[in-house]
Simulated scan of single mutants.
Amino acid sequence: MTASDLAIEVQDLGVRFRRNRRGRRNIKDLFSDSSRRAKPGEFWALRDVSFDVKPGESIGVVGRNGQGKSTLLKLVAGVLLADEGTVSVNGGVAPLIEITGGFVGDLTVRENVRLTSGLHGMSKAEVSRRFDGIIDFAELEDFIDTPYKHLSNGMKVRLAFAVVSQLEEPILLVDEVLAVGDKAFREKCYRRIDELLADGRTLFFVSHSERDLRRFCTRGLYLDKHRLAMDAPIGKVLDRYNADYPTGV
């Protein structure tokens, strides 16, 4: 299979962050590749990570807190840039990564739907056509003209998922946000994800919920010590993770 046949291709990926201001990289560092070592005050969030994802695959990313799961998702989404290696994504992504991403506190729900949908690439005609469905899915009919900042966290999650799940991009990125919200709405989101997977979408899913990972994912990536420790069927990955860390995250 060639690179053009893959949904996602990651090769020798590495990204580093600073722990404090003293370790901050300067302009010279940005244009220099003189050393593969992290400088004082820096650490590798991910290192030497390589994997491919075929169109239509459902990938679950597993690991303890702080091992680079959300960082990997943001690299695939194009929110972060790698310090080493490459990330190639063939096709658009529908990112459900941070519930506040793209929303403006002082704008109303109505205004935010139009703004964020447009930022995700929907035309004005598409937004108008999908608007009622978004509001209905988010269960915010009584809050259309309420400023976003006055919504509860649960309402914000509902709105974010409602917008992103309407996108027709082939790759869906989900990062733990479904842990917020009531049980009834989570089940509603799960049914929508099932519909998207049945439609042939590719899922890249970060979660600590073993139940959700087993439900949606067929394959798992296990990140440990900031590297890819295992790439295998999701059941085997979860068994390995639970054996390594029986007390959880």
Rank of each mutant, 00 (worst) to 15 (best):
V127T: 12
E168S: 08
A3N: 11
L167M: 06
V89N: 02
F216E: 00
V174C: 03
F31M: 12
Y245D: 05
R191D: 07
P147C: 05
S34C: 14
T116N: 15
L159Q: 02
R37H: 14
V87S: 04
L46C: 08
R110F: 14
G235S: 12
I135P: 02
L213W: 00
A232L: 02
M122V: 03
I8F: 08
G102L: 06
T146P: 07
E141I: 12
I144P: 04
L196V: 12
V249P: 06
V174A: 01
E111N: 08
S32D: 14
S123P: 08
E9N: 13
N20G: 07
S34H: 13
L178V: 06
G220R: 01
A162Q: 01
M1T: 12
F143E: 06
N90G: 08
A232S: 08
V93Y: 03
Q166D: 10
L107Q: 09
N242T: 12
L238M: 10
F103Y: 13
S32M: 13
I135E: 01
T100E: 15
L221K: 02
Y222V: 01
T116H: 15
N242D: 12
F204W: 06
L81H: 14
G154T: 00
K124E: 13
L72G: 05
N26L: 11
R18D: 09
H120F: 13
L75P: 01
K225A: 13
L140N: 01
E84N: 09
Q11Y: 08
N153I: 13
N26F: 14
V249T: 15
G41A: 05
V49Q: 05
Q67F: 06
S209L: 02
S123I: 09
V87G: 03
V174M: 04
E111D: 11
A45E: 09
R215P: 03
D29R: 07
D145H: 03
W44V: 02
K74M: 09
N153Q: 14
R215H: 10
L223N: 02
T2L: 12
V163P: 00
K69Q: 10
L6P: 06
E187S: 09
G181K: 00
V61L: 07
N26V: 13
E168P: 10
G248W: 00
R24V: 14
I8M: 04
T116V: 15
V127C: 09
R201F: 07
T71F: 06
S35I: 08
D142K: 14
A229C: 06
L72C: 06
S70G: 08
P170K: 01
T218I: 02
T108D: 08
V61Q: 00
L221Q: 00
R130L: 10
Q166I: 04
L96E: 07
A198M: 08
T100F: 15
G14Y: 10
K54F: 15
V87A: 09
A184F: 15
A243D: 10
M1L: 13
D83A: 07
F103H: 08
L196R: 11
L46H: 07
L238T: 01
K54L: 15
N112Y: 07
L173C: 00
G154D: 02
G101Y: 13
R21Q: 12
L96R: 02
L173Q: 00
E98C: 11
K74W: 04
